[in-house]
């Protein structure tokens, strides 16, 4: 038997994610930690990293970025999916009273984490931000996990107007959080890291990078300090 490089399965359901994205639920058998990712192969086109919204069944969020995500958004139930993974290091599950800070598509891996933490009885607080209401992702998944959810948008079209980091600061200042988990644009992660230092709370963040191999050999995803997002991360301590 020739073992496949990629795990294969089929799309089971496609749900809207925000106004422009989709959540793809598949039947691909995969067991992963929140924060781990897969390389998703579109035959004859490309292979790119995607973080997981859930495992077993494998669930991905896709927002429109380029030709590959455009193709993925048109997937229908029954279409085949090809993935390599799970890859990388995920989040610790050490937070007893965790605060999750998600910006934009950073909502995807933290939705997985919120569910996993809630399953083990942790009270999960989430600051979920986006530029506008139509870019807010996976709100219903956070609600289903029973998270205390604080929504912000930069234009005020949903929730509180402002930056998600401001809400995170307020929640940290109130006390009661013992670990911060973040995912979003790098400037947001830098501000979250500064807050963690200020309030003396340990933090972890999931980074994004351009990747080729996903397995720690090609050197395409050096974070700038010689650490590889694909293998040393994508989750790093803040």
């Amino acid at each position: 038997m020739a073992p496949s490089v990629h795990l294969t399965g089929r799309v089971v359901r496609v749900e809207p994610a925000g106004h422009r994205g989709v959540t793809i639920v598949s039947d691909v058998p995969l067991s992963a930690r929140p924060g781990q990712f897969v390389m998703l192969w579109v035959p004859r086109m490309d292979e790119k990293p995607f973080s997981l919204v859930a495992d077993s069944p494998l669930t991905l969020a896709v927002v429109p970025v380029g030709p590959v995500t455009g193709r993925l958004q048109r997937l229908q139930p029954g279409d085949p999916l090809y993935v390599r993974g799970p890859l990388g290091r995920g989040f610790s599950l050490d937070g007893k009273r965790p605060l999750l800070v998600a910006g934009g598509s950073g909502a995807a891996p933290l939705a997985f984490l919120a569910s996993r933490l809630a399953e083990t009885g942790r009270e999960v607080t989430v600051a979920l931000g986006a530029r506008s209401a139509d870019e807010l992702l996976l709100v219903e998944r956070y609600q289903a996990a029973g998270a205390r959810l604080w929504i912000t948008t930069e234009d005020g079209s949903a929730g509180e107007r402002g930056l998600v980091v401001s809400v995170a600061e307020r929640l940290l200042a109130n006390g009661g959080c013992d670990r911060v988990y973040a995912c979003g644009p790098v400037p947001m992660l830098e501000r979250v890291a500064a807050l963690c230092r200020l309030y003396g709370v340990p933090g972890e963040a999931s980074y994004e990078a351009y990747m080729r191999c996903g397995i720690g050999v090609c050197g395409s995803c050096d974070r700038g300090d010689g650490l590889l997002v694909c293998r040393d991360g994508p989750v790093f301590g803040l």
Binding site: V5, M39, D46, E47, K48, I215, V217
Partner: peptide
């Protein structure tokens, strides 16, 4: 383009 490196 990717895939460019694969384990087997």
């Amino acid at each position: 383009p990717n895939p460019t490196v694969l384990p087997w």
